[in-house]
C-alpha cells in the first residue's frame, strides 16, 4: 500500500458499533423523513379532501357546510335534476367526439408528417402550439370567430358567400359542437406529437421486412404500424378522457354554459351549484361522480403501467 505515494489518507473510521448502528439507522430513515412532508400534503389535500367532499355530499349543506348525515339522498336528488342529465349528455357528446376526432386527426397528421417531410421542423411546432395556450384564450378566440355577428359568418359574407350561415354557437342544439371544435383545435396537435413519437419508435426493420413481404403502404399502416401504436392510443385516450371530464375553462370562456344551459357539463354544473346556487351538497355529490368517472379510467391505467414497470 505504500509503494506509490506519500499522501496520507484518512484512517479507517472506527466507531463502536452501537453508535454506528444508530447513525446508520438515522441515515436509513432520512429519505423517508424528507419525503414525508410531500406525502403528508398529498394525503391531506388530496385524499383527505376527497373524503371531506364525499362526506359533504351526504349532508344537507347548502350555502355553508353542515355536518349532519342524510345518506345518499343528494345523489338521488342529483340524478333527478334535468340539468345534471343535460351535463352528462353533453359530456358524452363532447367526450366521444373530442377523443375520436383528436385521435383520428392526430394519427392522420402524424402519418403525413412521418413521410420525410421537408419543413417538418416548422410544421410540427405550428400544429402543437395551441397546447401552450390557456383554454380561456382559446375560448375567447373561438368565441368571437364563431360569433355570427362578427366572425366566420360575416367574413364569408364579406368575401362574397352571401348564403353562408353558421350560428352553432348561438344554437341550443349545436352549441356543444362548437366546444368540440375549439377543444380539438387545442389538443389534436398534442395527440399528433404522441403518435409521431410512437411512429418514430417503431423498429424500421419491421417496416422493411413487411415491404419485402410485399405489403403496400396502405396495408403496411393498417396491418403492421397502426396496431403497433396501441400504447400511444391508450395514452392518448387516457389523457383526453380525463381532460374531457375535467373541462371547465373552455366551456366558461366559449359559451359560459349557454345558450341557456345548452353547454352545461359536469364541471360547470358542480361550480354553479356549489358557489352560485348555494346547493353545496349537490355540488359535492356531482364532484364525487366526476372523480369516480376519472378514477375508472385512470386507476386501471396507472395500475397496469406501474406493474408493467415493476416487471421490467
Amino acid at each position: 500500500m505504500t509503494a506509490t505515494s506519500n499522501v496520507t489518507t484518512e484512517p479507517v473510521l472506527r466507531r463502536s458499533s452501537g453508535a454506528t448502528a444508530l447513525r446508520r439507522g438515522l441515515q436509513d430513515w432520512l429519505p423517508r423523513i424528507v419525503l414525508a412532508p410531500s406525502f403528508a400534503v398529498i394525503i391531506l389535500f388530496v385524499y383527505g379532501f376527497i373524503v371531506f367532499t364525499a362526506y359533504l355530499s351526504m349532508t344537507s349543506s347548502t350555502l355553508l357546510p353542515r355536518f349532519d348525515f342524510i345518506g345518499l339522498e343528494n345523489y338521488v336528488k342529483l340524478f333527478k335534476l334535468p340539468n345534471w342529465w343535460i351535463a352528462l349528455k353533453n359530456l358524452a357528446i363532447f367526450g366521444s367526439l373530442y377523443i375520436g376526432i383528436c385521435c383520428a386527426l392526430g394519427l392522420f397528421l402524424a402519418i403525413l408528417l412521418d413521410q420525410k417531410i421537408r419543413g417538418e421542423g416548422i410544421l410540427r411546432p405550428i400544429y402543437l402550439y395551441p397546447m401552450a395556450l390557456s383554454f380561456i384564450v382559446t375560448g375567447t378566440a373561438w368565441k368571437w370567430f364563431l360569433d355570427p355577428g362578427i366572425g366566420l359568418d360575416q367574413t364569408m359574407h364579406a368575401l362574397g358567400w352571401a348564403s353562408f350561415h353558421f350560428d352553432w354557437i348561438k344554437n341550443r342544439d349545436m352549441a356543444i359542437y362548437t366546444v368540440v371544435i375549439a377543444a380539438v383545435w387545442q389538443s389534436s396537435g398534442f395527440v399528433m406529437a404522441m403518435f409521431l413519437a410512437g411512429l418514430r419508435g417503431i423498429d424500421t426493420e419491421i417496416m422493411r421486412a413487411a415491404a419485402i413481404d410485399g405489403a403496400g403502404p396502405w396495408q403496411l399502416y393498417r396491418r403492421i404500424i397502426i396496431p403497433m401504436l396501441r400504447p400511444a392510443f391508450l395514452s392518448a385516450f387516457v389523457v383526453l378522457a380525463h381532460m374531457a371530464i375535467k373541462s371547465y375553462d373552455l366551456v366558461i370562456a366559449l359559451t359560459n354554459g349557454g345558450p341557456g344551459r345548452a353547454t352545461e357539463v359536469p364541471a360547470t354544473f358542480m361550480y354553479s351549484y356549489t358557489f352560485t346556487r348555494s346547493q353545496m351538497a349537490i355540488g359535492a355529490a356531482s364532484a364525487v361522480i366526476m372523480l369516480m368517472m376519472v378514477a375508472s379510467i385512470i386507476v386501471p391505467y396507472l395500475y397496469s403501467e406501474l406493474s408493467a414497470e415493476r416487471q421490467q
Binding site: 406525502f39 388530496v46 379532501f49 356531482s286 364532484a287 372523480l291
Partner: peptide
Amino acid sequence: MMLFSCFIPFQIVLI
C-alpha cells in the same frame, strides 16, 4: 398515490 393526485378533477377539492 402521488401520481393519481395529478389526475383528480379539482372540483373534488374546491370546497
